Amino acid sequence: MRGRLDSQVAIVTGGADGIGRAIAELFAREGAKVCIADVNRELGEEVKAGICDKSGDAIFVETDIAEPASIAQMVEQTVENLGEPSVLVNNAGFIAFTDDPAEATPELWHKIFAVNLEGMWECSRAVLPFMRKAGRGSIVNLGSVHSFQIVTGHFPYAVTKHGVIGLTRSLAVEYGPENIRVNALCPGMVETPTALRGWEELDDPAGVRKWVGDLHPLKRSASCEEMAYPALFLACEESSFMTGQSLVVDGGRSAFYSD
């Protein structure tokens, strides 16, 4: 049976855990050769082994998205081991915020932009020559519901996620004539391992988990797998006339007002 990403070479940044892991594993099941790019070697090797054990084709490359040289090395290893990339999922991200924007340090500002926006651009810039040569390509950038609505106490994270939409739309317009599509996937609350660990440190983990889930009309948060399938749609030919768009997958959270 033909997979939706047969013959494709996909890079998934932040692919060792959470949403990125779910995307990497699904892409492999759909026939893609996958590069898992992440700073976490132990988890990255684990994901790679799991894919290869199921007859998939994957490599892990330890990658610091905040360092252009590290990105360049990762793309080089992808080309050498898997082939020229035709799909890029810019999933790697850094979550940090402060209650008072005036208290955000220059170090915090530069670090979060280095990963969430500059790193996203550097990864895109590194794969674009291959996509342009092939005359096709799909880039999926991970935005957020924070890309559109400001929630107090989430500075400067929300600023970077607004920037993701600008980057997505700019690249889509510039490279659309060359059959390179660029879209954003914007999740709501997702029960990633990081989120679950954070809740476990609170006094009432189950209560907080239910409270967060109840913010959504579906009365629950998403699983990582529920973000992987929309990412697959954006990456494959099923969305071939879709570019410069932001696919919001938030359980209906943004559809209603609450104070």
Rank of each mutant, 00 (worst) to 15 (best):
M1C: 14
G3L: 07
A10K: 00
G15E: 04
A16H: 01
G18M: 01
A22F: 08
F27R: 09
E30T: 03
A32K: 03
D38H: 03
D38P: 11
V39P: 10
V39H: 13
R41D: 13
L43G: 07
E45M: 02
E46P: 12
D53L: 06
G56P: 01
A58W: 03
E62C: 10
E62K: 09
T63R: 08
I65Y: 08
A66L: 14
S70E: 04
I71Q: 10
Q73H: 06
Q77H: 11
T78M: 10
N81Q: 08
S86N: 11
V89Q: 09
N90S: 05
N91I: 01
F97L: 12
F97R: 14
A102Q: 05
A104R: 02
E107K: 04
W109M: 01
W109F: 01
K111W: 11
F113H: 13
E122Q: 07
E122M: 04
A126V: 00
P129Q: 12
R132S: 12
K133Q: 05
S138A: 11
N141D: 02
G143Y: 12
S144Y: 03
H146P: 15
H146R: 11
H146K: 14
Q149Y: 04
F155A: 02
V159P: 06
K161G: 14
G163S: 02
S170M: 15
A172L: 02
A184K: 12
C186L: 06
G188R: 00
E191G: 07
R197S: 04
R197M: 05
W199M: 12
D204T: 06
V208I: 08
R209D: 00
W211R: 08
D214N: 04
D214S: 01
L215V: 05
H216A: 01
S223F: 02
Y229L: 14
P230W: 05
E238A: 13
M242F: 13
R253M: 08
R253V: 06
F256K: 05
